[in-house]
Design a protein around this nucleic acid. Structure first.
Lengths: 313, 313
DNA sequence: CGTAGGCCTGCTCATATGAGCAGATCCGTA
DNA sequence: TACGGATCTGCTCATATGAGCAGGCCTACG
């Protein structure tokens, strides 16, 4: 486009958007026909001279969402923009809460994992987001936790706000020996919870990073050395307590045998599996989850979405 | 507006502006009527959820321009946005050049002052911006200048690009004694130039700040002490070589008697007097010029425009 | 309990806008 | 110079949109 034409588009755009003139008036003002004004305006939009943005804490990035859905075959994606100074985790948690509340049909049984992210989602749910939902934990995590009750409170909060019931999984996440794990699984109470978890109409989960900051280390289930060893074997993070590689496979089958909770295949075959993830540190595990089909719905921040969509990986 | 409604406006705005859906489609998608969608969209725009900006080096701020015209009774105002890292002076000079080129009727005689700003305007004019314009200097400034020829070259450049003729004022800006000034004025050549200057169909000028950096000091017409004394007496800057107070009056009539060039009243009564000014340092002198009716057209940057529009001054 | 006033909703209708088309104009090539 | 293709221009017509209006609903107050 000639410099001259470009300047004219700028004038048209100014009169149209800042002065609220009609294209007809603009034409009269600038001595051009209204069609030409319209075309210049279209050019201005195309060339990015006119920049339109939605500024709101709960805005979304529909373009990225569409790209993610197409690229990874998701049923739904929710991407929130994060401005400097915003807390990405909190924004994403809010979006996940919104999505959960808008989910139709309303899940009668909701299977959830636990962790900081899920706790945050629970906090952002509004009272009465649903009614009568049974919220069941899909992986263990009680008692060894430094902050006891976090896992339980997440489930309780979600259930409470939906005027429903929380069903906790009374077991550690990782047992020392496979036999112990099997023994606990065989326990009637635990088995009942697991059975309920398997029937859930929707799952809501996040993921952890494989490094020393992992909750498994903090909780005493694994040592920092254990995690370092997992990383050496290719682990990128954990999903409902199970460590996976970049391609989504279990890193260490022996460890997995000692891990109590819903299996990853249950997630893969679930109708609705909502994966909530935020932050730079979780880009790798997020990639592993979406590429290996562990979720049908992804809720994340803009930066993570963009990282997932980058080519050549 | 309730939180709920606000969120809905955000969704509508996203679908409308980012997904290019019609209000009808949006209504269907969100389960509302198209009228409601339209109203929510209007609310989103009103509340500033939708932000539309024109991003272009030659964009203008029409809102500020209107405010300036109304506030100071100007015929026209041109305000350019200046982003971080932009050179305000250069942007404003470009805008002034654009305005001059678009001026109708095309001035047959254009009276100009000189200085860095005007030189910059001359540089931004495009070849053939007019044809056959006689460009006449309205204040003296030759020969004592450290960079001889600047004043002359400004006029020459403007005239050359308009396929016209430059008429220089062969005299210093400020003389040592009033008699000398009168003698020079009486000179046939000088008188002819002054007479032509008085007939100009348009004037284009800038202004200087009253401090030690003034071109008058650099050129040797005044000493730093002289300027300090002028400031003590209330000077805020100079217009075509004449120092004025905040209210637009001449600071020192005796000095003014020694200053050769068009008088300020000629500017005040001119049909078209274009004042070009940019930069934080010139806010005070700019205020003095516009409030005392020295110009009919103001060309400036956004920050200066905003400073001029601030209340209580 | 009744009612006036304010707000919201869904409509009609006039207007603004974009898609698509035919003629005009420009430019390079034979 | 003549020709063919590409681009530009001004139009028609269908559609999208906003203004304005009447009726419904909610609330506060007598």
């Amino acid at each position: 486009m000639s410099d001259d034409t470009e300047l004219l588009s700028v004038r048209v755009a100014e009169l149209y958007y800042e002065e609220n003139k009609t294209q007809d008036e603009i034409g009269a003002l600038l001595g051009i026909t209204r069609w030409k004004a319209g075309r210049l305006l279209a050019q201005a939009r195309e060339k990015g001279i006119v920049r339109i943005q939605i500024v709101h804490p709960r805005a979304r990035r529909l373009g990225l969402e569409r790209a993610l859905r197409e690229r990874f075959g998701l049923v739904e994606a929710v991407v929130v923009p994060v401005a400097d100074g915003d807390d990405a985790q909190s924004r994403v948690a809010q979006a996940a809460a919104d999505h959960l509340a808008a989910l139709r049909p309303v899940p009668r049984i909701l299977g959830i994992s636990w962790g900081r992210t899920l706790q945050d989602v629970a906090g952002h749910l509004s009272d009465g987001w649903a009614s009568g939902v049974r919220v069941v934990q899909i992986n263990g995590g009680v008692s060894l936790n430094r902050r006891p009750g976090t896992a339980a409170s997440t489930a309780a909060t979600i259930a409470h706000k939906a005027a429903g019931e929380a069903i906790l999984l009374p077991s550690p996440a990782i047992l020392e020996r496979p036999e112990t794990k099997r023994a606990i699984e065989a326990d009637r109470t635990v088995a009942a919870v697991m059975s309920l978890a398997a029937q859930a109409s929707a799952y809501l989960f996040s993921a952890g990073v494989a490094d020393a900051s992992s909750v498994h280390v903090g909780s005493g289930y694994l040592t920092a050395d254990d995690v370092a060893e997992l990383v050496r074997k290719g682990a990128v993070g954990d999903v409902v307590g199970r460590y996976i590689e970049a391609d989504g496979n279990i890193v260490d089958p022996a460890l997995d045998e000692r891990t109590l909770g819903l299996g990853l295949n249950a997630l893969r075959s679930a109708r609705t599996a909502i994966f909530v993830v935020a932050g730079q540190a979780k880009h790798d595990i997020a990639r592993a989850v979406v590429t290996s089909g562990l979720c049908t719905v992804l809720v994340t921040d803009e930066a993570t979405a963009q990282a997932l969509l980058e080519e050549n990986r």
